[in-house]
Design a protein around this nucleic acid. Sequence first.
DNA 1: TTCATTATCAACCATATGGTTGACTATATC
DNA 2: GATATAGTCAACCATATGGTTGATAATGAA
Lengths: 110, 110
Amino acid sequence: MVDNERQLDSVFRALGDPTRLRMIEQLARGDQTVSDLAAPLDMTLAGASKHVGVLEQAGLLTREKRGRERICALNPDALLAARDWVERYSAFWSQRLDALDQALKEDGDD
Amino acid sequence: MVDNERQLDSVFRALGDPTRLRMIEQLARGDQTVSDLAAPLDMTLAGASKHVGVLEQAGLLTREKRGRERICALNPDALLAARDWVERYSAFWSQRLDALDQALKEDGDD
DNA sequence: TTCATTATCAACCATATGGTTGACTATATC
DNA sequence: GATATAGTCAACCATATGGTTGATAATGAA
């Protein structure tokens, strides 16, 4: 839990590429081989494999061997960590509106 | 709404750096000048200013002139867009569990 | 065995990124 | 006016990143 912060930026960096974003979206529809993930992309298989490696490194997916294929599956943990962070800091807005509200009330009492 | 996808990876890329992640966290505690944001960092002001530029470009903050300072404020829109995406794809896990549940039930009826 | 398919790896290339320094603008203060 | 402060900009540098090609390994199919 403590080093959540440390891995967070690698998760965001992994998501910070349109190709990899597409891969995650495709994986949400079910497990895929590396070739499956590469198919819709205008890119060599080796290139796609490197992207899969980045996502795996960031903990966003797992890759396991089955015959001569590698089955990729989303790993929810990393995505959940990202969700928690974004959740917390996107909530700041309503928090600050609440604070403003409070301030106005107290100002009204003045 | 349509080009949400297109800007999403620039938001994630902007968040994919520990320095900028810290800046966002600091901004959640209130508006800050560029110098404020730079202060805790082991970096020149110019360097910090570039990071602020990246965050601004991604739509994560706004920068406006006040005297000789620039006041930085979080812009919730980009963060909310990121939240929506992460929300949707981190929900995949429970969705798939539901699907599995459904499949098992239907298999039982077989 | 032989050939095809799936995937990785290493080497390489062009460009992007994170950082610096130095010059500059604009505002504030003396 | 002179000087200090806040910030940006341009140029530069080292490294990271996204992509390629070619070789290789491992499995599947003939």
